[in-house]
Design a protein around this nucleic acid. Sequence first.
DNA 1: TCTAAGATGGGT
DNA 2: CCCATCTTAGAA
Length: 203
Amino acid sequence: MNIQGYEKLPTSFYLNADVVAISQSLLGVYLFSCFDGILTGGRIVETEAYKGGFDLASHATKGKTKRTEVVFRAGGCAYVYLCYGIHHLLNVVTNESEKPDCALIRAIEPVIGVPEMMLRRNKSKQERLTAGPGTVTQALGITTKQNGVDLTGDQIWLAKSIVEIPFEMETSTRIGVGYPGADALLPWRFSIKRSAFVSVAVK
DNA sequence: TCTAAGATGGGT
DNA sequence: CCCATCTTAGAA
């Protein structure tokens, strides 16, 4: 799957050992999904970095489990898990094999297939259509069935636009991470300043 | 086996 | 503010 005007990110992009740098460079990148011939996608406006090993907020820090197995794979695949029994959250797995880092996609700005995304979200307006990690996956039709899929394949993929829109980056602490003590203070949430589709305003 | 809690979102 | 809803991990 290749769309005119976009360049799909190669696997090498995800192998970078610095998940914080990757999370930052994902801003302004486009996320696409295609299921049953229906193409949907948007521009990433908010991400968070989770670094396995020492970051207590990461699912992977306690070692490999059935759920986190994909995070331990080599970068370039999707980690999708169910949160609160209701919401599917999409992460991009990064770094080499056995280095369990990933970037959470928290919000996108709807660009392609907007009517289909509104249908999936059961909304009649574009406002706040994909402003939050659970709403992004719902709009794109992503569920845990896509856990582990290759991000250079034709179901879910990321691509840079040939025409880049300039933006200012904003940095803050991660949302919903209260329990890991000091790690909750890590400034590992990145967003595009003044975007209407960022999930929660920066304090 | 049992159970608490969670990287949320939507409605009141 | 409250609730839906269910997997996972860790305890018993």
